[in-house]
Nucleic acid binder design. Structure first.
Lengths: 128, 128
DNA sequence: ACTTGACTTGGAGTCAACTCCAAGTGATAA
DNA sequence: TTATCACTTGGAGTTGACTCCAAGTCAAGT
């Protein structure tokens, strides 16, 4: 799979994919004879994983550490689990914050809806 | 209320509070005789609102637009409602993404837990 | 043979949102 | 009176995460 295909499939720009590789978030992708990236199944899976994690706001630094540990093999399983657990906890905290904000937004929107209704009533006398 | 108190109460740095005022996210706060900010109830409420919205990731630009409309009075109620509704929808979308990520994290963590259990079993022979 | 188009690189630029700094002021404590 | 301390300003610097660019390579189509 060429970079443009991966880019399209996951809606990540080619620039970003190269950037991820440059900073070590994705290990060096294999190249064909003319030096062009050829993403294999493992590469694509990793892109998918990164995309998912990034979409939830996990920092790139943490993800670099995590994929580094994955590369190092089974001895790092505990460390990897710890990272995921910590990020999970931070994610839950962020979601709770967002839920609070959502509740406030819903309340404010309902207040505005009522304000609009009231205005409409004023414009249309009861007799009609 | 002096800036340091507001800062402490809402865990927002004084620098950030001054920054918010400078960019128009908070309207100019009243000063005492020596030019020092004295936040009144309305100011504090606004800080609280901003903090809540920012913690959920609503962009500063959007919030500036919103508080600008609030300043302009009742004629802007529809526009304000539209902004809040749009941001609500974006927020729900982000939360859905995060829920997907949370599910994947939980799955991965459970896989790691099992891997650890398996390792422990290997170390402790059945006979014991 | 030449153009087109997708790729390559290293490095610079951008953006949002802060965060820090130097130099100055004014009220209180020793 | 002098030191301390919280505040003030305008402006510069930082951070995280991209995003863009110029110059070059290579394979395929006309």
């Amino acid at each position: 799979m060429r970079i443009a295909e991966v880019s399209e499939q996951y809606a990540i720009s080619s620039d970003t994919l190269r950037y991820y590789e440059r900073i070590g978030l994705i290990p060096p992708v294999n190249r064909n004879e003319s030096g062009i990236r050829d993403y294999n199944g493992t590469d694509v899976k990793r892109v998918e994983f990164i995309k998912c994690m990034r979409s939830a706001g996990l920092p790139i630094e943490v993800l670099i550490e995590y994929v580094g540990l994955v590369q190092q093999g089974d001895t790092t399983i505990e460390a990897r689990k710890d990272i995921l657990k910590e990020q999970r906890q931070l994610l839950v905290a962020r979601m709770k914050e967002m839920q609070k904000t959502l509740d406030l937004l819903d309340y404010k929107i309902s207040v505005y809806e009522n304000a609009v209704l009231k205005k409409e009533k004023e414009l249309i006398p009861i007799e009609l």
